[in-house]
Design a protein around this nucleic acid. Sequence first.
RNA 1: AGGCGCGUAGCUCAGUUGGUUAGAGCGCCACGUUGACAUCGUGGAGGUCGGUGGUUCGAAUCCACUCGCGCCUACCA
Length: 921
Amino acid sequence: MEKQFDPKAIESKWYERWEARGDFAPAGDGEPYCIMLPPPNVTGSLHMGHAFQHTLMDALTRYHRMRGHRTLWQPGTDHAGIATQMVVERQLAGEGSDRHALGRESFVERIWQWKAESGGTITRQMRRLGASVDWSRERFTMDEGLSAAVNEVFVRLFEEDLIYRGQRLVNWDPVLRTAISDLEVESQEEDGHLWHFRYPLTDGSGHLVVATTRPETMLGDTAVAVHPEDDRYRHLIGQTVRLPLAERDIPIVADDYVDPEFGSGCVKITPAHDFNDYALGERHDLPRINILNEDATVADTAPEAYRGLDRYAARERVVADMEAAGLLAETEKHRLMVPRGDRSGAVIEPYLTDQWFVRAKPLAEPAIRAVEDGRIRFVPGNWDKTYYEWMRNIEDWCISRQLWWGHRIPAWYDADGNVYVGRNETEVRERHGLGDAALTRDEDVLDTWFSSALWPFSTLGWPDDTEALRTFYPTSVLVTGFDIIFFWVARMIMMGLKFMDDVPFREVYITGLIRDSEGQKMSKSKGNVLDPIDLIDGIDAESLVAKRTAGLMQPQKAKAIEKMTRKEYPDGIPAYGTDALRFTFAALASQGRDLRFDLERVAGYRNFCNKLWNAARFVLMNTEGEDCGAAADAEVELSWADRWIVSQLQRTEAEVDRQIRAYRFDLAAKAVYDFVWHHYCDWYLELCKPVLNADGTGEAARRGTRRTLVRVLEATLRLMHPFTPFITEEIWQRVASPAGREGDSIQHQPYPRADEDRIDPEAEAEIAWLQEVILGLRQIRGEMDIAPRKALPVLAQNADADDRARLERHRDALAFLAAVESVRVLETDEEPPESATALAGRMKLLVPMAGLIDKEAELNRLDKRLAQIDKERSAVCGKLDNENFVNKAPAEVVQKQRDRLAELDAALAELRGQRERIAAM
RNA sequence: AGGCGCGUAGCUCAGUUGGUUAGAGCGCCACGUUGACAUCGUGGAGGUCGGUGGUUCGAAUCCACUCGCGCCUACCA
């Protein structure tokens, strides 16, 4: 083996073998376990959030596969309607063309081409991450089967009146010129103005003042509203005002919606351009005047002077005209929430159009119940509140999009505008007896999330009753971020319950969000993104800068991004390898908080991989070609250390298993790390050395230690495999045989299960004693500046029979790990020489000071220890002197404190005595 | 406005039902290279657990209030 672990040398080799052999396909007849990969955008690339989530999904998948479950991790990609269409439209714009010039068919063809070219990025990256998805089942939301499922769902929902078409106010993106759903609107507070306008009463008796943030919409006003109880205006209700500029008479209506405290207490009402006004208009049966075109220019329904103006130009014009007419009462600065499209960034316009909707309430009710009664569990649990909040206030879902890339709505219109919905045109004609009448298909496509909502069953073959569907639905767990609970999770639950009559998954594990080391959200525009592949392979500073500054929406930011990047990564990023990256993700995955991603952390886990690698190297150096006691009748003798490490392994196995089940990957990773580094390497390997090297060791003892070395390592590799698949496979191939195991790959080996019977309290006590002695002596050495390899003669005082036996038993270990030259047990009445002291239980270890230790230094050291002990002693005494504590606390707790006090007193007495003696010398 | 979360060592974070000597990693200080590993070893320094008050024999942990920060929903013209 190489002295240093080199991930590059092994990773691609193993993944190719696993995939070629079909290792990731569900196998056996165990209990089914299934995870649906949240389908990434087909033309996207893997970002840190993906890599994080994929790591956790893969860990779960490998864990269950090793436990013998019939495990499926179902991969696939999403067509991502708007996002993908925008990319190709931008390309066309670069060529001086647009989709209309191309025509629908060619445009869609062009997107398919783009998908074919760039669509493999994510899946290639997933392979680099070691994701053990079953590629043979890979699906795409727009492939044939999934499209059929989409049509089927649409038709069935339509037939049950759960999908309808209607003219309603929707969120309109005037740049993309399509409707979008409520969820695709992101509101942000921005600076604006509040304009106060005078609207004259028609009868000439005065005027009302209304305030607005959007003056141009007054062209579509159809009422002014006041609060019914507002004494200032009560007498005017039912009268009309003369709407300036448009010169129309509009009524004054009374409605509770109006807050009399705000502004003048009068509100202009524009039902066609504001959601609240729309609702108010419905209550009062007001006309709706749509004054905007699709691109947010003023329409012909408005007065001539404004037609064709952009909405913001119209705004200025309206304000100027009102001012000129003496009707502008006041202009004030105002912060307001501005709705923007999440894709285009354009200011969204409430807009009156014909769209298709899913009736949400009837679907939401069973979906709420599924979480309430525990058929679906959120992890961490508090996310159910977020879910309930949204589901209980859910509005109908606008599913039609005025785009070309997506599932075209299966609806046809005849010459009279009658609508027919069916799985295809032939079916529509047959079912409605339309013969060969002219039919035109609806131009619109469905919201991307409509097909995503079906993912848990459409990928398994629905609407056909397939073996896969019967086996893997409901799936086991969904792993995703909180940001798509509404977009996706809630909708999958609704659709799953509706069409499968069962929940789509039993648990939803919500991961935190990956941020950069400063706690900033990672985004292309901030220039702080990291490509997980760059952490695996490494990247030089130039390439990293080039990558981060390429294709920016705001190219002027490039300089700042370059500066920041060069400062943070002057030498680029070293290659850490996949296993280190994955282990980092696992270790960071604590619950309920966002996580800061810090390269120092990855470096630490790369070191950990190297540690494991070298431990394996040591084991192999000591076992290759040697008898490791594999034979059934081999005579084998286990040392205390052997028994101890086996015992520790059981505890670790139990802990890791428990934490994985609880989705506490951070704690599972910590348990593994502690075991490998601090138990196996720091102590066990060191304790093995004297056994293997000493001349006096018997063959049965060597065999026992070799066998334990290699078997514990082998089990540890299996324990770690879900987190670090590559290094564990590589090493396992070398140690499996000496450890007495057979198999083609570690991933099909059983996951370690703790064996209660192999927990060995006797061995644990023995090694705990040994550690205490060694640590005590090392402390003296360290604090007294005694050279590390300077062999020390040690005297033991107050050693009881056990201590004496143990000192004898572990003489080699003490010599090796604490450089003890000799140990002599003092007789009861023997006066010790001037010495430095350490305690191990009641036994006192003395290192004679002659020539080694400075008297003052030892006195200081003792004073420090005494102070520590004395401080704790006062705390314990405080408790025990408290009658209430002694009377009310559980007996065992009280006893524990008494025992502790006794220990402290003994230690105090010993050390004080020691101090006096040294001081007197 | 409502909801959720966070505040523990210089930094990033654990601390599961109240009883630990409050932990880890990184960083810091000192010492150390005859082969598992310098991507390492040994020893050490460093925290009144945001604040106040309460419940309790006992609070980082439970309750109330408070300060600071973050996120998500929401109709303020």
